[in-house]
Design a protein around this nucleic acid. Sequence first.
DNA 1: TTGGGTGCAAATCTTTTGCAGGTGT
DNA 2: ACACCTGCAAAAGATTTGCACCCAA
Lengths: 131, 131
Amino acid sequence: MATLKYSRQRESIKEFLMTRKDHPTADVVYENVKKIYPNISLGTVYRNLSLLSDLGEIQKLSSFGGADHFDGCVTPHCHFMCTECKRVLDLETEDVNDLAPKAVRNFGGKISSCDIRFFGLCEDCLKNTEV
Amino acid sequence: MATLKYSRQRESIKEFLMTRKDHPTADVVYENVKKIYPNISLGTVYRNLSLLSDLGEIQKLSSFGGADHFDGCVTPHCHFMCTECKRVLDLETEDVNDLAPKAVRNFGGKISSCDIRFFGLCEDCLKNTEV
DNA sequence: TTGGGTGCAAATCTTTTGCAGGTGT
DNA sequence: ACACCTGCAAAAGATTTGCACCCAA
């Protein structure tokens, strides 16, 4: 069995994610954790992001088109991606994450989670479009 | 300007997608269309899937973890992915796709679409688990 | 001591792209 | 004929993995 062992790299990766309000990609995590552990490798970052995600300590936001994004906040919440600047943001919503599964009809399987994503223009890009 | 020109390959790709209830990946599309046009290349499949998706004639379901899936049905509806067998299915639901955007609070941007995905065990995998 | 963790590099997988030649209009 | 489209292959981007060494328990 896989006994989890402490690693400063994993700790640092998780800490970094917690301090970020945006949702960095593995690459961005790598660049930043490298400031603390210059020898860390991208492979280690991927391995730990994947491990933390399996443990449910972080959330993996699979492909919004390009590279995966990672979210240090695991409370269910919706995400928004700007089709212009590609930024990924959190969204405040009523409790759609609870409601959505209840809207499902005629399904014999078992739903355990749901992921809601919105697309459109973020506030900044909307302003630029109006000009 | 890009004037659209007919191509039997594109036609065949779209036709194939319409006949499928599941949501094949580019690779599966390629393997199947090759039965009709043995010389078709994977690049052409990708180019046309991307083009059709831009035209709004098909729907691209970006990364459920691995390769993108494509859906010949463009009416808004939710999708489900089995965490066990990785199958992607359509789900019948109340009109959450209309409701979800209305649940958003304090957002200054403009939402133009939403994508709802459920995860869990499909009917078949649920049965196998119970055994 | 022992098995998990790491760095490095190579490999894999998915998708995109440049180019020369083919084809619809 | 002109512009778009195709096949092919190489390139690009993201992620995984094999291996020898390192380190926490």
